[in-house]
């Protein structure tokens, strides 16, 4: 049976996934700040409140800590909440419940409970929202055993991974780059899942592997197309999940290309690039490396307001092209 595939935006794909999950299971509820009639700060929930009512599309007070905790408590006792943090930066306010409670409750109780909560985090820079509304904090949460952390990069994946997250018995944190919300792409109708913990090779190549996350996948693909014109053949891996990491896909690729460039928006130091680099250094792929591993990450600064400074604070296509070219040509 053919499944119709349409063009949807990333935010429409999220909304469709939530609607499908809510249609299929009465236990699925949405919680968050201004997700009801307002439709969410980024219009991701949109008009869902009209379809499912305010009891299932629940506006919370501006209470990130308490709200996250209510979602955790509801998940433990039979509901399947999808909790939206209005901005991922506000995870800092809910951290106690995410890190100490959601992530550890199953373990502390010796497996007597599961915590099937989904938390959504609009993340990243590029909107002129300055330092407290533009961060990429996914590595903070990926450092915590008990959580799963995903960064879908396409409308297709965000729908399938959100549906996988709702079905997952454990807490899943979804980091959605805000600049992706309007990006369109093919999305199949109906229910499907994209597995958590599996990376995707977006572009095959022989000369160099770029491991990228979220919006950087698209920038890496653009860089790869440009460099193809120079005869440099780049493999681009969309990591998609940062906990648990798909080791096999990354290691196999590096063994093939012998060169690795990590590209991510979060602050470079102690980020996902460090983890990928160490993973390769510890693996059999290390012996295949023909050059030092290179990381391109965010600057060691808060995200600035000025648009030119803001762009300079995170990797951009020209920088990726330059780094990849140097790495492929052995300049480094």
């Amino acid at each position: 049976m053919d499944v119709a595939v349409r063009e949807l935006s990333y935010s429409q794909a999220i909304q469709e996934a939530m609607a499908i999950a809510m249609e299929a299971d009465e236990r699925v509820i949405l919680m968050g700040e201004d997700i009801g009639v307002y439709g969410g700060a980024f219009q991701v929930t949109g008009d869902l409140v009209e379809r499912f009512g305010p009891d299932r599309v629940m506006d919370t007070p501006i209470s990130e800590l308490g709200g996250a905790g209510v979602a955790v408590g509801a998940a433990v006792t039979g509901l399947r909440p999808i909790f939206e943090f209005q901005f991922s930066d506000f995870a800092t306010l809910g951290m106690e419940q995410i890190v100490n409670q959601a992530a550890k409750m199953r373990f502390m109780l010796g497996g007597e409970v599961s915590v099937p909560v989904v938390m959504r985090f609009p993340a990243g820079s590029g909107t002129g929202a300055a330092a407290q509304h533009s961060q990429s904090l996914e590595a903070w949460l990926a450092h915590v055993p008990g959580l799963k952390v995903i960064q879908p990069a396409t409308p297709h994946d965000v729908k399938g991974m959100l549906l996988a997250a709702v079905a997952d018995p454990d807490p899943v944190m979804i980091f959605e780059h805000k600049l992706l919300y309007k990006m369109k792409g093919p999305v199949p109708e109906g229910h499907y899942t994209v597995p958590i913990g599996k990376a995707e090779v977006r572009r095959e190549g022989r000369d160099l592997t770029i491991v990228a996350t979220s919006i950087m996948v698209h920038k890496a693909l653009e860089a790869a197309e440009t460099l193809a014109g120079e005869g440099i053949d780049i493999e681009v891996i969309d990591l998609r999940t940062i906990r648990p990491i798909d080791r096999e896909t990354v290691i196999a690729s590096v063994k093939k290309t012998s060169r690795l460039l990590c590209v991510y928006e979060a602050v470079k130091t102690l980020g996902i690039g460090a983890e990928i680099s160490a993973m390769i250094a510890e693996s059999e792929a290390f012996d295949y490396l023909d050059a030092p591993i290179v990381r391109l990450g965010g600057a060691e600064t808060p995200i600035p307001y000025n648009p030119e400074l803001e762009k300079a604070a995170v990797p951009q296509v020209p920088g990726i092209i330059a780094a990849a070219r140097d790495l492929a040509k052995g300049v480094r």
Binding site: V76, G78, N100, Q101
Partner: peptide, 25 residues
Amino acid sequence: NLGANGIVAGGIPIAVGAALSAKRL
């Protein structure tokens, strides 16, 4: 008993969530 808690006030929102489940279910 959903558990003792090492974080002061950590269990309070969880109880509210459990009560939300009770009401919805």
